[in-house]
Design a protein around this nucleic acid. Structure first.
Length: 360
DNA sequence: AAAACGGGGAA
DNA sequence: TTCCCAGTTTT
């Protein structure tokens, strides 16, 4: 077999992708609309998220908000509550901020070009290209994990794809390919679907692949080495010692602030430590924060390790019964009834604790 | 250029 | 366990 890497013409490549897509595409709800609002919504939800995980959230959101105006007019905490469990919560906050921008600054008219879409919070080069091509058939190429994988394998991009220079190269190739195709929408959808269904990360279906004879990785026996990713993420351990204040059927929570994880989500009073601490140590720290309040320890629950992409969280929930109401400055927490707590946006960690220990 | 940001599912 | 997902923002 010929050993030359680029013996497939760009035009032939794009045709194969489009044909494959028309024959193999899944029916997904956001593919049945041209409404940029819904396409935008689906793209934000699907960032770093598999279709199966994002699907129920898409359904909930379009049910709750039929226009960008309705989304803009809701409270951020409600948007976060709908987003609960999806992760990367800045997406929800940016989604809401972008909706307000469209509603207030753009008179409710959704941006319709790659460049103008880029101005929306939470919309980067991938999402701007996706919306521009899906909703408006603009000839720009969205480059996501699927596209990176397909192009690096077929065209033999052997540099580390976590490097900016490599990404730039792939982005350029992707854009050269899209201009070959009349229907940017089908070609781009096809590239991502092809990566998601055929040219999958592990054990790709090369036996039935329409590009197999042209594929650099297959011919050089490198399908399991491409795309090349050198970056190894390191994790840190954190210890969350939560104090669950209870007083007359109410519990005290507060929203997280700052640039840390879970911004905007509610949690109990927190005493964080860099190592595991004893119950006694935690109670002592708690005493320092309190003024005249007296309390009784009712329960001490140790949750399993909660794993995030960059952190391992070891958490414990110490439930204490207060003899009096807590002054509002203490830990910044506020009292909520159970039905109110149900409506607050919370992390999976907090929600699991509540389900297991409070709501049950 | 590198690190931070969630949670779940597949192998 | 490890990988990685329809990535973006911040440092």
């Amino acid at each position: 077999m010929d050993d030359e890497p680029q013996n497939i013409h760009k035009k032939d490549f794009s045709k194969i992708i489009v044909d494959w897509y028309e024959a193999n595409k899944r029916d997904l709800p956001w593919r049945e609309t041209k409404d940029p609002f819904k396409i935008w919504l689906s793209e934000i939800i699907l960032q770093q998220t598999r279709v199966n995980q994002g699907m129920p959230y898409y359904e909930k959101f379009v049910e709750a908000y039929s226009t960008v105006i309705e989304l803009a007019n809701d409270e951020e905490s409600n948007v976060l509550r709908l987003w609960q469990g999806l992760g990367y919560y800045s997406r929800a906050r940016n989604l809401h901020a972008a909706a307000k921008y469209v509603a207030n600054e753009l008179n409710g008219e959704f941006p319709n070009t790659y460049e103008s879409l880029l101005k929306l919070k939470g919309v980067g080069s991938y999402t701007a290209a996706a919306i521009a091509s899906f909703a408006f058939n603009e000839k720009v190429a969205p480059v996501d994990g699927n596209v990176i994988r397909v192009l690096s394998r077929v065209f033999g991009i052997t540099e580390d794809v976590s490097k900016g220079s490599t990404l730039k190269k792939i982005n350029q190739l992707a854009n050269e390919l899209v201009v070959e195709e009349e229907n940017a929408q089908s070609y781009n959808q096809g590239m991502m679907e092809f990566g998601a269904m055929q040219c999958v990360p592990k054990s790709p279906k090369c036996e039935t692949c329409p590009i197999a004879q042209y594929c650099y990785a297959l011919r050089h026996n490198k399908i399991d080495q491409l795309p090349r990713k050198d970056k190894k993420i390191k994790k840190r351990n954190r210890f969350f010692n939560y104090i669950v204040f209870e007083h007359k059927d109410k519990f005290y929570l507060r929203p997280r602030t700052g640039k840390d994880i879970w911004t905007g989500l509610y949690e109990f009073a927190l005493i964080e430590s860099t190592e595991e601490k004893s119950t006694e140590w935690i109670i002592e720290e708690l005493q320092k924060e309190l003024k005249t309040e007296s309390f009784k320890v009712k329960d001490d629950y140790v949750a399993g390790k909660h794993v995030l992409s960059h952190q391992n969280l070891f958490s414990r929930f110490i439930k204490v019964e207060l003899s009096d109401k807590l002054s509002s400055e203490t830990f910044g927490v506020e009292a909520f009834s159970l039905s109110e707590i149900e409506q607050l946006p919370k992390s999976i960690l907090i929600n699991n604790y509540l389900e297991k220990n409070i709501f049950s």
